[in-house]
Design a binder for these strands. Sequence first.
DNA 1: TCAAAAGTGTTCGTCGTACACCCATGT
DNA 2: ACATGGGTGTACGACGAACACTTTTGA
Lengths: 225, 225
Amino acid sequence: MTGLALPPQATQVGLAVDIAAFAMHGGELNVLLVQRGQLPHARDWALPGGFVQPGEELHEAALRELRTETTVQLEPRHLEQFYTFGEVGRDPRGRIVSVAHLAVLPHGTVSVSGGGHTLEAEWLSAHRPPRLAFDHQAILTRALLRLQLRLEYANLALEFLPDTFTLPELQGVYEAILDRQLDKRNFRKRLLAQSILTPSGERRSGVGRPAQLYRRAKNVRVAAL
Amino acid sequence: MTGLALPPQATQVGLAVDIAAFAMHGGELNVLLVQRGQLPHARDWALPGGFVQPGEELHEAALRELRTETTVQLEPRHLEQFYTFGEVGRDPRGRIVSVAHLAVLPHGTVSVSGGGHTLEAEWLSAHRPPRLAFDHQAILTRALLRLQLRLEYANLALEFLPDTFTLPELQGVYEAILDRQLDKRNFRKRLLAQSILTPSGERRSGVGRPAQLYRRAKNVRVAAL
DNA sequence: TCAAAAGTGTTCGTCGTACACCCATGT
DNA sequence: ACATGGGTGTACGACGAACACTTTTGA
């Protein structure tokens, strides 16, 4: 670091992050929402988020807000910035620019509750959410688009599931994210052809015929960008 | 707007925009670079950019910086934000977060020269640029990736050309952006099948056989996101 | 034996890719 | 006539979409 100073024309704005955190619950794609405890928009639902602190990286701020505004314990399996919302009038408190992030939380991330400045935190339907504060509906819509894009040519669906899972479960994740039904035979053919799955040898019992369990093949990573 | 104030924990950071502006010159994809006139990185090449002003939208700031740092007259045919660079140490002057934009300038945007705080502005090779200041090489690389993505399923290539153009010229734009050769027959088949082009009836003479001129079909718009 | 969920193959259309020769003009 | 760049068609493989019945288990 040199001793150079910020030039005077450097506009100072509030820098925030908002997080659209997704997880699967009961076959539905859910998004993590908090109920605001402060003005503006007190008692309205909103995406978790908050101001970036000095010296804090953007993704660190996103992780911190997830942990302090909700009681999510597990680390996100995936976290990426996807768009920056900076429209002048988007926040009544002044010029606040928000770098929006998309997070995928692993299976088992169930119990959440409010913390910090929030009254409550809940997993709610991502495709049919309640009315949201600020421009958070626009942020959520864009997050869903990005998630659907990623599904196709990264393998983000695996991040929603535990280590071992069945093909019908994986298909359920795809269907919940795309919000439409898929053909079972085509889905299996396509997924198995990618050879990103290895059968674990075990089977999962329940009602009906037991399903083969799979796990992520070695050397398979989530694609970037 | 209400009288609500920014909460005290709202970190103030410098908010900037940087622009990767592309155009075709002599069959090569060029990017608009400026030579810095100030520290840090004085005399180094950099992407045009600067601080967002109070009450100014992000895309307005990008347009303003293009106009003041260079003498580009024409309006960009396409302008989109593509990533926000906010790493703590990316600028020695302090915490500066930059919303990076991708711009496409139309054909005929040739003469540029420095203005404002820049010594010089030039169109230089986008795929083989000189050494760049700050993290601008990373920004440029990401801009190129985004441009290549857009090429496929928006029709951004048309924005690089004048109203009427020949198919070999359009193919040249594709090849310059993708930085590889394409097959002439396959290219024509694919483009004509999209029915986004209509023959203008005229032909362009020169050396060799005259080429059919095309123009963008009515009702064809550049796709969003 | 029945209900419930898992598993399996084929056909067809579309799309990308590889590949070589003739055509129209200016000099 | 020749050099220069424009224009054309076919064959093949890969991939996505549509579509119905059999298998395995627990109750």
